[in-house]
């Protein structure tokens, strides 16, 4: 397996002293992040179950004995790292980025929907189809029924920057209807939109899995957990819940790289990327900014242009 041999080589050459990558998880459809030294190389895997965004695991990791921390980077991990660099959360020289092209990742929530309670123990890919199997069942479905919605509309399967690359980097992919999910909601009348979001967020149990999996929710104390002031209530009251999600969308606006971690992590299957995608489009159209592509550019919410559009202001 090229992955393991290449990583071993990097350890041996002293390019990296440790590595953040993926290992087999306890559930068959979701790999888990692992933090290894040379001895752990054989645990490494990379396949369509490696959805977790690894960038967050880099935060506050310092090089050990002067040796860099290696990290396996799909497009979205790499873009998150670039965003970290603009936010002063990382030193470029502490990290060794190992690029890898992403085939698109499975969304466990979508799988769960399809298998209706049965336990998947194995999967197999055949071109554009994926066959799921478990105790007494087998189900073959098109790839797009099981992949993370974020992956299906991903334009950047490879990280924009890397120190080495496993396989060959893929160019930017042109996506026709990147904002289809957003547009679908927008085509509804306002009252129906409200009803939709009310029922969607009404399911939220405030477990914060979305926040905890998000590479950009790296605050030590999240605003929602603060007192003085207590920004909002912490219970499962609907307005508090909605506002929590709205503020999270605002806080990640201009930063979110649509890795889809939040949505995959949500135990209630709430379509969380609707809000972030809506913000992404606004930032792109209004401020001409796409997160995670440039280290030099100031993030849009810390910048301005004198001629920013202001059609909404009287």
């Amino acid at each position: 397996m090229e992955l393991r041999s290449r990583i071993r080589e990097l350890f041996q050459k002293g390019e990296i002293g440790s590595l953040i990558g993926y290992g087999r998880g306890t559930l068959p459809l979701s790999a888990r992040p692992i933090f290894i030294t040379e001895g752990g190389v054989d645990q490494l895997i990379f396949d369509i179950t490696c959805g977790v965004n690894l960038a967050k695991y880099l935060l506050r990791k310092k090089p050990i004995a002067g040796q860099k921390v290696g990290i396996i980077c799909k497009g979205c991990d790499g873009r998150a790292i670039i965003q970290y660099l603009t936010e002063g959360q990382l030193n470029r020289e502490d990290v060794y980025i190992i690029g890898i092209s992403c085939p698109g990742m499975i969304d466990p929530n979508r799988v769960r929907e399809k298998v209706r309670g049965r336990v998947v123990t194995n999967y197999q890919m055949n071109g554009e189809e994926i066959t799921l199997s478990g105790d007494g069942f087998q189900l073959t479905l098109p790839r797009e029924d099981l992949l993370s919605r974020s992956c299906l509309r991903c334009r950047y399967p490879s990280p924009p920057i890397y120190d080495t690359f496993i396989g060959s980097p893929k160019d930017r992919v042109e996506i026709q209807d990147e904002y289809r999910s957003v547009a679908e909601i927008e085509s509804l009348p306002a009252a129906e939109r409200w009803n939709y979001f009310q029922s969607e967020f009404g399911r939220c149990i405030r477990c914060y899995a979305c926040r905890n999996s998000c590479p950009f929710c790296y605050c030590d104390v999240c605003f929602v957990d603060q007192t003085n002031p207590q920004w909002f209530g912490k219970g499962v009251e609907l307005t508090d819940t909605i506002i929590f999600h709205l503020v999270r969308a605002l806080h990640t606006a201009g930063r979110c790289v649509d890795c889809g971690s939040c949505e995959r992590a949500c135990p209630m299957g709430i379509k969380l990327t609707l809000l972030s995608k809506r913000m992404e489009r606004e930032v792109r159209e209004r401020f001409d900014y796409i997160p995670g592509l440039s280290v030099e550019e100031t993030p849009p919410m810390a910048a301005y242009r004198e001629d920013d559009p202001q059609e909404f202001i009287q």
Binding site: I185, A190, R193, W194, I242, M279, R286, E306, Q310, I313
Partner: peptide, 23 residues
């Protein structure tokens, strides 16, 4: 330059509120 930064924040908030159906 305070109002320039404000303008960016407001633009996003406005888009978001309308998206979820607030008039």
């Amino acid at each position: 330059t305070g109002n320039y930064y404000a303008r960016r924040k407001f633009a996003l908030l406005k888009a978001l509120l309308e998206f979820i159906g607030i008039e």
